[in-house]
Amino acid sequence: MVKYVLLFSIFIALGARADFESSIKDHEDIGTQTLLYLVKNRDVVKSNISSEDKLAASQALSTSILSWEVSDGVNGIETGSFILLGWKHHPNIVASWFNRNPNSLSRWLKQQDYLFNGLLGEYDEVEALRLDIIKSLKGSNLENNISSASYLEVLEDLEVPQY
């Protein structure tokens, strides 16, 4: 399974998990709180996004997208990894949001090199994720769906780095 870079793992490596959580738990910023929620509930969020329950997937994706919208750097990779999972399992749900937010779609498309470079794991795992998303996009309704069609084009041209 692909291991994702995330701010949380950096703090664990530094032995500062409790400090990280306590330093942001009282912030009254929705981006900070959604990031904290994703970090603390990573497995549940991933399970909900991967499930066939569209309501659970939509709720988890909404939180992930909101957090991605206000994230950058490592946090953008972390939150983006949840959105990648959404494209794989529920491309029409993710596309419905990006279709309504063209500026966010543009930002998403421009970040794919950065995002796929930031995913940690074996080359074969990351490449398999890219190919799974392409397959999912091709199986979705691309007609009148500019975000899915645009994303498919970007992913087909993307080269996953081999380290």
Rank of each mutant, 00 (worst) to 15 (best):
L6Y: 13
L6Q: 11
F8L: 12
S9K: 15
F11S: 05
F11K: 06
F11P: 08
I12A: 14
A13D: 15
L14Q: 12
G15T: 01
G15D: 04
A18I: 14
F20H: 13
F20T: 08
F20Q: 10
E21C: 07
S23L: 09
S23W: 06
K25Y: 02
E28P: 07
D29W: 14
I30S: 14
G31K: 03
G31T: 13
G31P: 05
T32W: 03
T32D: 03
Q33E: 12
Q33R: 04
T34F: 15
T34S: 04
T34I: 10
T34L: 15
L35A: 10
L36S: 12
V39S: 13
K40A: 06
N41P: 05
R42L: 15
D43C: 09
V45M: 11
K46W: 15
K46E: 08
S47I: 05
N48R: 10
S50V: 12
S50T: 06
E52I: 06
E52H: 03
E52R: 05
D53C: 11
L55G: 14
A56Q: 15
S58W: 09
S58C: 03
Q59T: 07
A60C: 09
T63K: 04
S64K: 05
S64M: 00
L66C: 09
S67I: 06
V70S: 10
S71P: 01
D72G: 12
G73Y: 10
V74G: 02
V74A: 04
V74M: 11
N75H: 00
G76V: 09
I77F: 02
T79A: 10
S81L: 07
F82S: 11
F82I: 10
I83E: 03
L85V: 09
L85T: 04
W87M: 06
W87F: 09
H89R: 05
H90M: 01
P91C: 02
P91N: 14
N92D: 14
V94L: 01
V94Q: 04
S96W: 00
W97L: 08
W97T: 10
N99V: 07
N101D: 00
N101I: 07
N103I: 07
N103T: 11
N103F: 10
N103P: 06
S106K: 08
W108D: 01
Q111Y: 11
Q111T: 00
Q111K: 15
Q111H: 11
Q111R: 14
Q112C: 11
D113I: 03
L115N: 08
N117H: 12
N117L: 14
G118R: 04
G121F: 02
E122G: 02
E122K: 13
Y123P: 09
E125N: 07
V126K: 09
A128S: 12
L129Y: 00
R130S: 09
R130N: 06
D132I: 13
D132H: 13
I133G: 00
I134K: 06
K135C: 05
S136Q: 07
S136F: 06
S136V: 08
K138G: 04
S140H: 11
E143V: 13
E143D: 15
N145A: 00
N145K: 07
A149K: 05
A149V: 06
L152E: 06
L152A: 09
L155Y: 03
L155I: 02
L155T: 06
L155S: 02
D157K: 15
L158D: 01
L158E: 01
V160M: 00
V160Q: 05
V160N: 00
P161N: 11
P161L: 13
Q162Y: 15
Q162F: 14
Y163H: 10
Y163M: 08
